[in-house]
Write a protein that binds this DNA or RNA. Structure first.
Length: 295
DNA sequence: CGATTTCCCTGGCCGC
DNA sequence: TGCGGCCAGGGAAATC
């Protein structure tokens, strides 16, 4: 479940290794969510950026600026092989797998859920693996995000000045939706998913189901969102089940979670048992003592 | 047009 | 051991 800290970790790993590379070949799993990967072939990588949970790979195609956009969904992973052993020009075949299995370098062996591959001009390859196929790939003219409505309507980056307490308060209060739902909507602030939403609300002492927040609560919540995301980045992301960084490594932020996934356990601040609920079809944990409505 | 609901996906885990 | 049921859940399409 890559959220902003996980995507940012991957971005930092990919940027130096990908920038300047020419995408000379591609392969994609036969699904409209992944076949756009082929549209990137023939372009050169100018840089790797991030917006919210979206990875934006800047491309240059004969002077025209394009973007290769990758959303990792729930289980998406990106990695770079040190070398690619093409035994087939198209889909990975059993012969390919056999070849990878003989390799002594684990990075040369994609998993069984490869969804896209870009071969680089120096023989390496960028691989996109996604067990559950919630991920998505698109190639568009630079800045043209009409085909990705959530990206097109994305709120400010959490560390941008535009993500102010007043912005958060007025946006939350103009809707009747629960504050947690709105944090997850990507429209008020970009990049927050279920893990960091629960963590931020717990830290700020805001009930996840609140429909209205005060100025004081908005100030605390704005700061908490920034803090939990910054700490998540510092810890290389949260690995609970599937998340791995671009080098196959696990993050360590799961060691520092106070709220997410801890329903039934005592609150680390007041020892009250954290409560489980479902908000907008998302599993939610909160402390009934620290997080009061209207807080 | 904004809000709400449905659908997409598979692996791990649990109980019988 | 085998298997049905359930859970994880972000984003886009469909529907209200």
């Amino acid at each position: 479940m890559p959220e902003l800290p996980e995507v940012e970790t991957i971005r930092r790993q990919l940027a130096p290794r990908l920038t300047g590379a020419l995408l000379v070949d591609g392969w994609a799993f036969a699904s409209g969510k992944f076949t756009p990967a082929l549209d990137a072939v023939g372009a050169r990588v100018d840089g790797v950026r991030r917006r919210g949970k979206y990875l934006l790979i800047d491309l240059d195609r004969d002077g025209n600026a394009e973007e290769l956009i990758v959303h990792l969904g729930m289980t998406g992973r990106l990695s770079i092989t040190e070398r690619w052993i093409p035994t087939s020009a198209a889909a990975p075949t059993p012969a390919d797998r056999s070849s990878w299995a003989r390799s002594t370098d684990a990075t040369d062996r994609p998993g069984p859920h490869l969804r896209a591959r870009w071969t680089l001009d120096d023989g390496r390859a960028l691989l996109f693996d996604d067990v559950r196929r919630f991920g998505r790939i698109a190639v568009v003219p630079a800045g043209s995000h009409d085909a990705l409505p959530t990206l097109a309507a994305l709120g400010p980056e959490p560390f941008d000045d535009a993500f102010s307490p007043e912005h958060l308060r007025t946006q939350v209060n103009r809707s009747e939706r629960a504050v947690k739902t709105q944090l997850l909507s990507q429209r008020i602030v970009a990049g927050v998913g279920n893990i960091y939403a629960d963590e931020a609300l717990w830290r700020a002492g805001v009930h996840p189901g609140s429909r209205r927040i005060t100025r004081a609560a908005a100030q605390r919540l704005r700061d908490a969102v920034r803090d939990v995301l910054a700490e998540g980045i510092d810890h290389g992301g949260t690995t609970l089940r599937n998340y791995r960084d671009a080098e196959g490594g696990e993050g360590t932020n799961q060691r520092y979670l106070d709220c997410y996934g801890r329903a039934g356990e005592p609150c680390s601040r007041c020892a009250t048992i954290l409560r489980r609920s479902v908000i907008d079809a998302r599993a939610t944990a909160h402390c009934p003592r620290c997080q009061r409505r209207g807080g």
